[in-house]
Write a protein that binds this DNA or RNA. Structure first.
Lengths: 127, 127
DNA sequence: CGCCTGTCTTGACGTCCGTCGAATCAGAGA
DNA sequence: TCTCTGATTCGACGGACGTCAAGACAGGCG
Protein backbone atom coordinates (compact mmCIF):
# COMPACT_ATOMS: atom_id res chain seq x y z
CA UNK A 1 0.00 0.00 0.00
CA UNK A 2 2.90 2.30 0.58
CA UNK A 3 3.72 2.84 -3.05
CA UNK A 4 0.74 2.37 -5.30
CA UNK A 5 0.42 5.48 -7.41
CA UNK A 6 -2.99 7.09 -7.78
CA UNK A 7 -3.28 6.70 -4.02
CA UNK A 8 -6.63 7.04 -2.30
CA UNK A 9 -8.81 7.41 -5.38
CA UNK A 10 -11.87 6.28 -3.42
CA UNK A 11 -12.77 4.64 -6.69
CA UNK A 12 -15.64 7.05 -7.25
CA UNK A 13 -18.22 4.51 -8.20
CA UNK A 14 -20.76 6.50 -6.35
CA UNK A 15 -22.98 6.43 -9.34
CA UNK A 16 -26.46 5.29 -8.54
CA UNK A 17 -26.66 4.03 -12.08
CA UNK A 18 -26.78 0.26 -12.44
CA UNK A 19 -23.36 0.65 -14.01
CA UNK A 20 -22.92 -2.94 -15.00
CA UNK A 21 -24.96 -5.64 -16.56
CA UNK A 22 -24.24 -9.06 -15.10
CA UNK A 23 -20.78 -10.37 -15.76
CA UNK A 24 -22.29 -13.45 -17.40
CA UNK A 25 -24.46 -11.42 -19.71
CA UNK A 26 -22.06 -9.07 -21.40
CA UNK A 27 -18.29 -9.04 -21.44
CA UNK A 28 -16.95 -6.63 -18.84
CA UNK A 29 -14.85 -3.90 -20.50
CA UNK A 30 -11.34 -3.27 -19.30
CA UNK A 31 -12.22 0.11 -17.78
CA UNK A 32 -15.05 -1.35 -15.75
CA UNK A 33 -12.85 -4.19 -14.61
CA UNK A 34 -10.19 -1.75 -13.53
CA UNK A 35 -12.71 0.13 -11.42
CA UNK A 36 -14.53 -2.82 -9.91
CA UNK A 37 -11.70 -5.26 -9.33
CA UNK A 38 -10.26 -3.30 -6.39
CA UNK A 39 -13.58 -3.65 -4.58
CA UNK A 40 -13.50 -7.43 -4.99
CA UNK A 41 -9.88 -7.41 -3.98
CA UNK A 42 -10.75 -5.56 -0.80
CA UNK A 43 -13.28 -8.29 0.02
CA UNK A 44 -10.69 -10.93 -0.81
CA UNK A 45 -9.29 -11.12 2.68
CA UNK A 46 -11.10 -13.05 5.41
CA UNK A 47 -10.56 -10.33 7.99
CA UNK A 48 -11.89 -7.61 5.71
CA UNK A 49 -14.84 -9.75 4.67
CA UNK A 50 -15.78 -10.16 8.31
CA UNK A 51 -15.21 -6.49 9.02
CA UNK A 52 -17.43 -5.59 6.10
CA UNK A 53 -20.12 -7.90 7.39
CA UNK A 54 -19.89 -6.62 10.94
CA UNK A 55 -20.24 -3.06 9.70
CA UNK A 56 -23.01 -3.75 7.21
CA UNK A 57 -25.03 -5.83 9.65
CA UNK A 58 -24.59 -3.54 12.62
CA UNK A 59 -27.64 -2.50 14.55
CA UNK A 60 -27.67 1.18 13.73
CA UNK A 61 -26.00 0.74 10.38
CA UNK A 62 -22.68 1.71 11.83
CA UNK A 63 -19.95 0.08 13.89
CA UNK A 64 -17.34 1.56 16.18
CA UNK A 65 -13.71 0.58 15.72
CA UNK A 66 -13.67 -0.13 19.42
CA UNK A 67 -16.20 -2.91 18.82
CA UNK A 68 -14.52 -4.20 15.67
CA UNK A 69 -10.97 -4.56 16.95
CA UNK A 70 -11.53 -6.96 19.88
CA UNK A 71 -13.31 -9.40 17.54
CA UNK A 72 -9.98 -10.43 16.04
CA UNK A 73 -6.63 -11.68 17.24
CA UNK A 74 -4.95 -8.77 15.53
CA UNK A 75 -3.44 -5.53 16.72
CA UNK A 76 -5.21 -2.21 16.45
CA UNK A 77 -2.98 -0.92 13.67
CA UNK A 78 -3.69 -3.99 11.59
CA UNK A 79 -7.45 -3.57 11.89
CA UNK A 80 -7.03 0.10 11.11
CA UNK A 81 -5.09 -0.83 8.01
CA UNK A 82 -7.82 -3.20 6.83
CA UNK A 83 -10.46 -0.55 7.45
CA UNK A 84 -8.45 1.89 5.40
CA UNK A 85 -8.37 -0.64 2.58
CA UNK A 86 -12.15 -0.98 2.71
CA UNK A 87 -12.45 2.79 2.76
CA UNK A 88 -10.20 3.24 -0.25
CA UNK A 89 -12.17 0.61 -2.12
CA UNK A 90 -15.28 2.70 -1.56
CA UNK A 91 -16.98 0.00 0.47
CA UNK A 92 -17.32 1.92 3.72
CA UNK A 93 -17.34 5.43 5.09
CA UNK A 94 -15.75 6.59 8.31
CA UNK A 95 -16.89 9.31 10.66
CA UNK A 96 -15.30 10.49 13.85
CA UNK A 97 -17.65 11.45 16.66
CA UNK A 98 -15.77 12.54 19.71
CA UNK A 99 -13.38 9.90 20.85
CA UNK A 100 -14.65 7.13 18.62
CA UNK A 101 -14.66 6.47 14.92
CA UNK A 102 -17.69 4.86 13.31
CA UNK A 103 -17.76 2.97 10.04
CA UNK A 104 -20.78 2.67 7.81
CA UNK A 105 -21.33 0.52 4.73
CA UNK A 106 -22.07 2.01 1.30
CA UNK A 107 -24.98 -0.06 0.03
CA UNK A 108 -24.71 1.26 -3.53
CA UNK A 109 -21.45 -0.36 -4.34
CA UNK A 110 -22.49 -3.59 -2.64
CA UNK A 111 -25.52 -3.61 -4.89
CA UNK A 112 -23.37 -3.00 -7.94
CA UNK A 113 -21.08 -5.87 -7.09
CA UNK A 114 -24.01 -8.14 -6.44
CA UNK A 115 -25.58 -7.12 -9.74
CA UNK A 116 -22.37 -7.86 -11.58
CA UNK A 117 -22.30 -11.39 -10.17
CA UNK A 118 -25.99 -12.05 -10.56
CA UNK A 119 -27.05 -14.74 -12.93
CA UNK A 120 -30.35 -14.79 -14.67
CA UNK A 121 -32.05 -18.18 -14.33
CA UNK A 122 -32.63 -17.78 -18.04
CA UNK A 123 -28.91 -17.52 -18.71
CA UNK A 124 -28.25 -20.68 -16.74
CA UNK A 125 -30.97 -22.50 -18.62
CA UNK A 126 -29.69 -21.24 -21.95
CA UNK A 127 -27.29 -24.18 -22.23
CA UNK B 1 -4.72 -17.99 -0.46
CA UNK B 2 -2.56 -16.71 2.31
CA UNK B 3 -1.23 -19.98 3.61
CA UNK B 4 -3.22 -22.98 2.43
CA UNK B 5 -1.12 -24.87 -0.05
CA UNK B 6 -3.44 -27.84 0.07
CA UNK B 7 -2.95 -27.83 -3.68
CA UNK B 8 -5.94 -27.28 -5.88
CA UNK B 9 -8.59 -27.79 -3.24
CA UNK B 10 -11.25 -26.39 -5.56
CA UNK B 11 -12.65 -24.90 -2.38
CA UNK B 12 -15.51 -27.34 -2.45
CA UNK B 13 -18.32 -24.89 -2.13
CA UNK B 14 -20.18 -26.93 -4.62
CA UNK B 15 -23.08 -27.06 -2.27
CA UNK B 16 -26.30 -26.01 -3.90
CA UNK B 17 -27.41 -24.83 -0.52
CA UNK B 18 -27.78 -21.07 -0.17
CA UNK B 19 -24.83 -21.32 2.19
CA UNK B 20 -24.84 -17.74 3.29
CA UNK B 21 -27.35 -15.15 4.26
CA UNK B 22 -26.48 -11.70 2.97
CA UNK B 23 -23.40 -10.17 4.49
CA UNK B 24 -25.45 -7.20 5.66
CA UNK B 25 -28.01 -9.37 7.37
CA UNK B 26 -25.97 -11.55 9.64
CA UNK B 27 -22.34 -11.35 10.64
CA UNK B 28 -20.26 -13.68 8.48
CA UNK B 29 -18.50 -16.28 10.65
CA UNK B 30 -14.75 -16.70 10.37
CA UNK B 31 -15.02 -20.12 8.72
CA UNK B 32 -17.32 -18.83 6.02
CA UNK B 33 -15.08 -15.84 5.44
CA UNK B 34 -12.08 -18.14 5.09
CA UNK B 35 -13.86 -20.15 2.42
CA UNK B 36 -15.42 -17.30 0.46
CA UNK B 37 -12.68 -14.68 0.61
CA UNK B 38 -10.44 -16.56 -1.87
CA UNK B 39 -13.21 -16.39 -4.45
CA UNK B 40 -13.46 -12.62 -4.07
CA UNK B 41 -9.71 -12.41 -4.15
CA UNK B 42 -9.65 -14.28 -7.44
CA UNK B 43 -12.04 -11.70 -8.86
CA UNK B 44 -9.91 -8.93 -7.43
CA UNK B 45 -7.67 -8.64 -10.46
CA UNK B 46 -8.85 -6.76 -13.56
CA UNK B 47 -7.51 -9.41 -15.90
CA UNK B 48 -9.22 -12.24 -14.03
CA UNK B 49 -12.45 -10.29 -13.76
CA UNK B 50 -12.47 -9.87 -17.53
CA UNK B 51 -11.52 -13.51 -18.06
CA UNK B 52 -14.35 -14.58 -15.79
CA UNK B 53 -16.76 -12.41 -17.72
CA UNK B 54 -15.56 -13.62 -21.09
CA UNK B 55 -16.00 -17.21 -19.98
CA UNK B 56 -19.34 -16.72 -18.28
CA UNK B 57 -20.80 -14.72 -21.15
CA UNK B 58 -19.47 -16.93 -23.92
CA UNK B 59 -21.89 -18.11 -26.54
CA UNK B 60 -21.87 -21.81 -25.76
CA UNK B 61 -21.14 -21.32 -22.10
CA UNK B 62 -17.51 -22.05 -22.65
CA UNK B 63 -14.46 -20.23 -23.95
CA UNK B 64 -11.26 -21.51 -25.53
CA UNK B 65 -7.92 -20.32 -24.18
CA UNK B 66 -7.02 -19.54 -27.75
CA UNK B 67 -9.79 -16.92 -27.78
CA UNK B 68 -9.02 -15.60 -24.32
CA UNK B 69 -5.29 -15.02 -24.66
CA UNK B 70 -5.25 -12.61 -27.62
CA UNK B 71 -7.70 -10.32 -25.81
CA UNK B 72 -4.93 -9.14 -23.51
CA UNK B 73 -1.46 -7.68 -23.85
CA UNK B 74 -0.10 -10.51 -21.76
CA UNK B 75 1.85 -13.64 -22.53
CA UNK B 76 0.27 -17.07 -22.70
CA UNK B 77 1.79 -18.28 -19.46
CA UNK B 78 0.42 -15.28 -17.61
CA UNK B 79 -3.12 -15.90 -18.87
CA UNK B 80 -2.70 -19.55 -18.02
CA UNK B 81 -1.67 -18.59 -14.52
CA UNK B 82 -4.73 -16.41 -14.06
CA UNK B 83 -6.98 -19.17 -15.34
CA UNK B 84 -5.42 -21.52 -12.84
CA UNK B 85 -6.20 -19.04 -10.09
CA UNK B 86 -9.84 -18.92 -11.19
CA UNK B 87 -9.90 -22.71 -11.31
CA UNK B 88 -8.45 -23.06 -7.81
CA UNK B 89 -10.99 -20.57 -6.52
CA UNK B 90 -13.73 -22.82 -7.84
CA UNK B 91 -15.01 -20.19 -10.24
CA UNK B 92 -14.40 -22.08 -13.46
CA UNK B 93 -13.85 -25.58 -14.80
CA UNK B 94 -11.43 -26.60 -17.51
CA UNK B 95 -11.74 -29.33 -20.08
CA UNK B 96 -9.33 -30.35 -22.78
CA UNK B 97 -10.82 -31.38 -26.10
CA UNK B 98 -8.18 -32.25 -28.60
CA UNK B 99 -5.73 -29.47 -29.08
CA UNK B 100 -7.70 -26.84 -27.24
CA UNK B 101 -8.70 -26.28 -23.64
CA UNK B 102 -12.12 -24.89 -22.85
CA UNK B 103 -13.14 -23.07 -19.71
CA UNK B 104 -16.64 -22.98 -18.30
CA UNK B 105 -18.10 -20.92 -15.47
CA UNK B 106 -19.59 -22.47 -12.34
CA UNK B 107 -22.85 -20.60 -11.83
CA UNK B 108 -23.42 -21.94 -8.32
CA UNK B 109 -20.56 -20.15 -6.69
CA UNK B 110 -21.33 -16.97 -8.60
CA UNK B 111 -24.83 -17.14 -7.20
CA UNK B 112 -23.48 -17.66 -3.70
CA UNK B 113 -21.21 -14.67 -3.95
CA UNK B 114 -24.02 -12.54 -5.34
CA UNK B 115 -26.31 -13.68 -2.54
CA UNK B 116 -23.73 -12.78 0.04
CA UNK B 117 -23.49 -9.24 -1.31
CA UNK B 118 -27.19 -8.79 -1.89
CA UNK B 119 -28.98 -6.17 0.12
CA UNK B 120 -32.63 -6.35 0.99
CA UNK B 121 -34.38 -3.10 0.14
CA UNK B 122 -35.81 -3.44 3.63
CA UNK B 123 -32.36 -3.47 5.18
CA UNK B 124 -31.41 -0.34 3.30
CA UNK B 125 -34.58 1.37 4.36
CA UNK B 126 -34.06 0.38 7.98
CA UNK B 127 -31.89 3.44 8.57
C1' DC C 1 8.15 -41.37 -36.31
C1' DG C 2 9.04 -36.19 -36.32
C1' DC C 3 7.36 -31.75 -36.42
C1' DC C 4 4.15 -28.16 -35.37
C1' DT C 5 0.78 -25.74 -32.66
C1' DG C 6 -1.52 -24.88 -28.37
C1' DT C 7 -1.28 -24.98 -23.36
C1' DC C 8 0.79 -25.52 -18.96
C1' DT C 9 4.77 -25.61 -15.64
C1' DT C 10 9.09 -23.92 -13.83
C1' DG C 11 12.16 -20.52 -12.13
C1' DA C 12 13.11 -15.96 -11.52
C1' DC C 13 12.34 -10.97 -10.69
C1' DG C 14 10.27 -6.85 -8.71
C1' DT C 15 6.28 -5.25 -6.43
C1' DC C 16 2.47 -5.43 -3.30
C1' DC C 17 0.24 -7.26 0.90
C1' DG C 18 -0.61 -8.55 5.93
C1' DT C 19 1.29 -7.97 10.17
C1' DC C 20 3.63 -5.89 13.97
C1' DG C 21 5.88 -2.29 17.31
C1' DA C 22 6.70 2.41 17.93
C1' DA C 23 5.46 6.90 17.20
C1' DT C 24 1.87 10.26 16.24
C1' DC C 25 -2.60 12.47 16.10
C1' DA C 26 -7.43 13.67 18.08
C1' DG C 27 -10.59 14.46 21.76
C1' DA C 28 -12.29 14.21 26.55
C1' DG C 29 -11.63 15.28 31.13
C1' DA C 30 -9.23 16.63 35.49
C1' DT D 1 -2.57 22.68 30.68
C1' DC D 2 -1.40 17.95 31.19
C1' DT D 3 -2.70 13.33 30.81
C1' DC D 4 -5.26 9.44 29.34
C1' DT D 5 -7.59 6.71 25.88
C1' DG D 6 -8.85 5.56 21.13
C1' DA D 7 -7.41 5.51 16.36
C1' DT D 8 -4.21 6.23 12.66
C1' DT D 9 0.34 6.58 10.48
C1' DC D 10 5.16 5.18 9.95
C1' DG D 11 8.83 1.88 9.19
C1' DA D 12 10.05 -2.63 8.78
C1' DC D 13 9.83 -7.66 7.80
C1' DG D 14 8.45 -12.03 5.56
C1' DG D 15 5.55 -13.94 2.33
C1' DA D 16 2.43 -13.81 -1.59
C1' DC D 17 1.33 -11.96 -6.18
C1' DG D 18 1.73 -10.64 -11.33
C1' DT D 19 4.64 -11.03 -14.92
C1' DC D 20 7.89 -12.97 -18.12
C1' DA D 21 11.25 -16.21 -20.72
C1' DA D 22 12.39 -20.81 -21.26
C1' DG D 23 11.26 -25.33 -21.10
C1' DA D 24 7.98 -29.32 -20.87
C1' DC D 25 3.77 -31.60 -22.10
C1' DA D 26 -0.27 -32.92 -25.22
C1' DG D 27 -2.42 -33.77 -29.39
C1' DG D 28 -2.92 -33.46 -34.55
C1' DC D 29 -0.89 -34.19 -39.02
C1' DG D 30 2.54 -35.37 -42.57
Amino acid sequence: MSKQQASLPVVDLNADAPCCPPLAQRRVPAETAAVLAPAFKALGDPVRLQLMSMIASAEDGEACVCDLTPAFDLTGPTISHHLKTLREAGLVDAERRGTWVYYRARPQILRQLAALLSIEPAAAAKA
